[in-house]
């Protein structure tokens, strides 16, 4: 029982389109896995199946001991334990920064209001945005939005975090602040993370494992050093050489 996420022969279709092809993947508790691959290869789809934002058509997907595909599984219960950080932040546009962080703990976890507020302020402090507590999302920069989004996820005390290209929509000068926060999150020993990213330097730093996907398939799944030094798959090699030249 040391795996946090386990895909067993998972198939995912969008209509006739086969988006995930026979995915087998096991991510252990505490592991940090980076998922890379060309655009359209199914990275977002794969990460979104983990918290049920996309449904799978065949196979088993076990998250924190429960099979997501089972009808009897309470998906909302699983989602509490799985934080998701989106490319476009998706902060609640009608709530200020503090409320963004406090809302779900209040209505989903029924957290005590004082404790909730204390936690939210501590999280804001951690991501360096305590002074933005009462700003609306529209009043802060992209990098700040993403840091708030991470704090919002952490407020649910998740066991697992999914990051879907968390820095792809950011101006270059904002990327480092966000990566620093993510690095801190993944360094917590009991946190499991799945990160979709094109930041190869960052991947080398934080990953335990790297997975390469193309056309809905996992083509390579190695520990970090093997992956970056001796990738076996040809497409992975090509992809790496292209992306590292940039």
């Amino acid at each position: 029982m040391s795996s946090m996420i386990e895909f067993r022969n998972v198939q995912k279709y969008y209509g006739d389109f086969h988006a995930l092809k026979d995915i087998n993947l096991e991510i252990d508790k505490g592991e940090t896995v980076v998922l890379i691959g060309p655009s359209g290869s199914g990275k977002s789809t794969l990460s979104r199946t983990v918290n049920g934002l996309e449904t799978i058509q065949e196979g088993q997907l076990i998250v924190n001991g429960r099979d997501i595909a089972e009808r009897s599984t309470d998906i909302n219960r699983i989602r509490r334990d799985v934080g998701m950080v989106f490319q476009h932040f998706n902060l609640y546009a009608n709530k200020d920064v503090l409320e963004n962080i406090m809302l779900a703990p209040r209505i989903v976890l029924k957290m005590n209001e004082d404790e909730n507020k204390k936690q939210a302020m501590a999280l804001l402090d951690q991501v360096g945005l305590a002074d933005k507590a009462h700003n609306m999302p529209s009043q802060i920069s992209g990098g700040q939005k993403q840091r708030v989004a991470i704090a919002r996820s952490l407020a649910m005390k998740p066991r697992c975090m999914l990051f879907d290209e968390p820095t792809s929509a950011l101006d270059p000068e904002m990327i480092d602040d966000v990566l620093k926060v993510i690095k801190y999150v993944t360094s917590q020993s009991d946190m499991t993370s799945l990160i979709v990213t094109h930041e190869m330097g960052f991947a080398q730093e934080v990953a335990n494992r790297v997975i390469f996907m193309a056309d809905g398939e996992i083509l390579e799944d190695d520990n970090k050093d093997t992956f970056f030094n001796h990738p076996t798959n040809e497409r992975a090699t090509q992809f790496l050489s292209k992306i590292i030249k940039h």
């Binding site: 918290n51 219960r77 509490r80 989106f86 476009h88 998706n90 609640y92 009608n94 209505i107 989903v108």
Partner: peptide, 26 residues
């Protein structure tokens, strides 16, 4: 933006909670 509903559901809110607190006010 559908991302608003996704973020709310992703945090474990029910459809109705997401509607009430996030989507309908917008």
């Amino acid at each position: 933006d559908p991302g608003q509903m996704e973020a709310a559901r992703g945090q474990g809110m029910t459809f109705w909670q997401a509607m009430r607190y996030i989507v309908l006010p917008q």
